[in-house]
Simulated scan of single mutants.
Amino acid sequence: MHFNTRHILITGASGGIGTALAHALAEKGANLLLHGRKESALATLASECLQKGAAQVLTCAADLSTADGRATLLSTVAEDFTPLDTLINNAGTSCFQLFDQQSPDQIERLLTVNIHAPILLTQALLPRLLNNQTQPPVILNIGSAFGAIGFPGYSTYCASKAALRLFSEALSREYADTPLRVQYLAPPCDPHVT
């Protein structure tokens, strides 16, 4: 794959995995749209990516747990990053807490960020990806080893990552006869870093 012609959106780019992905893709000369919640962290990351060789770096600060935040990101793609050919759904959150001690708001936010947002973003961006005439489109969903095992204290997180894993598998099968490739990556899990 020639990354120097790719236009890649990374959600949650200013987190640990997102930053590593952004740096690695920048070194390959990719065009990047970096999403996160904090503009200052994104600005720093964008500068690093340009120094590492990224062809272009744009940023979008938005909270994906809200409809307005998701709309902001989609608007940025539509206005400033139209050649999008790769979507990396990396944004996520976790909470180490016994299930009966989690508040409904904590559960709802975790499920929204980890599963609702990637599914809704994928659906919204799917036509643009499928209509891309220059590159075979790719969707990469970043999961966790906790998406395959149930881990005490992470029941809601495990459920969200298992849902993302099965969503990826089903979507891959739905579009098996098209150029679109849907992949799920589950890095080994450190309970303190997600």
Rank of each mutant, 00 (worst) to 15 (best):
L73D: 04
T93K: 06
Q101G: 05
L64P: 11
V77M: 10
V113T: 15
P136K: 10
L74E: 15
P118W: 01
Q106T: 13
P127W: 05
L74R: 08
D80M: 08
A124T: 05
T66E: 04
T82L: 12
N90D: 04
T86I: 07
A124D: 06
L64M: 11
V77G: 05
G143S: 11
I139A: 09
Q102P: 06
L87C: 12
L73H: 03
N114V: 00
C60T: 09
L84P: 08
L120W: 03
T76V: 14
L126P: 11
L130V: 05
R109M: 13
Q102R: 15
R70F: 05
A117D: 10
D80S: 14
V138Y: 13
L130P: 12
I119C: 14
T59Y: 02
C95Q: 13
I119S: 09
F99Q: 03
N114I: 00
E108G: 00
P104T: 09
S144W: 02
Q101N: 14
N132H: 06
G69R: 06
P104Y: 09
G92R: 03
I88G: 00
I139M: 08
T72I: 14
L58N: 09
L74T: 11
A91S: 01
C95W: 07
L73K: 01
P104Q: 14
L87T: 07
V113N: 05
A78W: 08
L58D: 13
V77P: 09
G92D: 02
P137S: 13
I115V: 05
C95H: 12
D85K: 07
L87Q: 09
A71W: 02
L130C: 06
Q123E: 12
S75M: 08
P104S: 11
Q97N: 12
S75K: 14
S75F: 07
G92S: 09
I88F: 00
V113C: 07
I88Y: 00
A117R: 06
L74I: 10
S75I: 02
P83Y: 08
A145E: 15
I142S: 01
N89S: 08
T59H: 01
D63I: 01
V77E: 12
G143D: 07
L87Y: 08
N141P: 05
Q101T: 03
S103I: 03
I119F: 15
S94Y: 10
Q135E: 15
A67W: 03
V57Q: 12
T59Q: 07
Q101E: 15
D80Y: 11
E79H: 15
D85V: 02
L98C: 05
N90K: 01
N90A: 00
L73N: 06
L87N: 07
I142Q: 02
G69K: 04
L140V: 15
S144D: 00
L120P: 00
T112I: 02
V138T: 14
V77Y: 10
C60H: 06
L58G: 07
A61P: 05
Q135H: 14
C60I: 08
F81V: 12
T72Q: 15
T76C: 14
A78D: 14
Q102N: 09
L110G: 04
R109W: 07
L84C: 06
H116A: 11
N131V: 02
P127N: 02
A145K: 14
A71T: 11
L98E: 13
S94T: 07
A78N: 12
Q123V: 01
T122A: 04
L129E: 11
V57G: 12
D100N: 15
A117G: 03
P137D: 13
A78P: 12
T72C: 10
